[in-house]
Computed example of a mutant assay.
Amino acid sequence: MSDYVLVTGGIGLIGNAVRQRLEDRGDKVVAIDRVAATIDGRQVIECDVTDAHGLHAIARRYPIRAIVHCGAFSGPMVSPDHPMQMIRVNIGGTANVGELARILGGIRLVFASTATAYGVTPDGPVREDVAMEPDSMYGASKAASEQILNAYRRQFGVDTVSLRLTWVYGPRRTTACLIRQMLTDALAGRTTRIPYGRDFPRQYIHLDDAADSMIAALDRPDLPQQAYNISGGNWLTLSQVADTVMRAVPGAKVEVAAGDDPGDIRQERFDIAAAARDLGYRPKISLEDGVKSYLSWLKANGAAA
């Protein structure tokens, strides 16, 4: 393929993983982020998604055949005290990317959304037609971004699709992650003490499965839905997650107290049947295997020190 896939958020966890998969299979990629960088020998160009002129300059320089939009403040724990910045980057940036896709014409735009956009859910399984009632600015920014892209699809025919990802864990995650905390504590010989969550459910997905779902959404033509739930296929309490870590990592010790996670919302199991049907998506990495591979990466990258 002669034209490029534009990946926004190229320094980020999912954007970098998507970019690697695309290039490794032979696609040409232009990755952008708010600062320039080189990751594993791969260049990321400086271009903030809030800079509409910069985005169009990138498109003039690199003919674009598709867009994977991962550029955003990622996670409810990021910049919670700066809601206007969240709106400017997440919503304004998505509008800029949608407008770029409209002007370019005839391209697929895949958006990394989040299951947090649902807010507290009704009883599961939770399908994509459940109303989104987010209770954080992060969730609201992603829900609003989805609606903007849906409007671009309905009014202008832009080929957009949003993937509502659950909690992503794995190599290079820099924001708060209990699995990483458990593993780094185990490597240091410490007991992890979590002051909540014994019966609190969380649906983790390994980075590799998340990236694979983005590639599948990029490749599949004529998708019948505008949004898809993407999870790792599990619905476990944090106590069960801790038990999995202790099985997978000899010597790991994790204590989990009762109570809900004060930084998260209670959600029922997400139904991923539509993603299986339309994207061919099925999670490949069990939590235990994912924990083991994450531990190996942490060891190789100095976490044991």
Rank of each mutant, 00 (worst) to 15 (best):
R154G: 09
I39Y: 13
I285P: 00
D159Q: 06
C70R: 01
A275Y: 02
E99P: 09
S296Q: 14
G10S: 05
G232F: 00
R247E: 14
T184P: 04
N16A: 12
R34S: 11
N301S: 07
N229D: 13
Y152D: 13
R173G: 08
I87K: 10
S162V: 04
S113M: 06
A151D: 08
L100Q: 11
D81C: 14
R25Q: 11
L298H: 06
R193I: 13
A57L: 11
N229H: 13
E255D: 08
G106Y: 07
P122Y: 08
V29M: 04
V97I: 14
A101N: 06
D208E: 14
F156C: 11
A66K: 03
D81Q: 14
I215T: 02
L207P: 04
D212E: 15
I91G: 11
L149H: 05
M214Q: 01
C70P: 03
K292T: 05
V97H: 05
I45A: 09
E146H: 05
L187S: 02
A144C: 04
L13E: 09
A31G: 09
A273L: 08
L236W: 06
T174A: 14
D27W: 08
P224S: 12
R65W: 05
R19G: 04
Q20L: 13
G41E: 13
A176C: 14
T192M: 09
V44A: 06
R108E: 06
K253Y: 07
V120T: 15
R173S: 08
R65S: 06
A305N: 15
L187A: 03
G157D: 15
F111D: 05
Y196G: 01
V5P: 00
S213F: 01
L183W: 05
A300C: 12
A257I: 03
Q203S: 08
I87A: 13
L165E: 01
S79C: 10
R193S: 11
L218H: 01
R34D: 08
F73A: 09
G98E: 09
I205L: 09
A101F: 10
G41Y: 09
D289P: 00
R220Q: 12
P201C: 03
V78W: 06
W297M: 10
Q203V: 03
R19A: 08
T8W: 02
P125S: 12
A151C: 05
D123C: 13
E23K: 04
E268P: 02
S286W: 04
G10H: 02
L236I: 04
A151W: 07
N234V: 11
L6V: 04
I87V: 14
M77T: 15
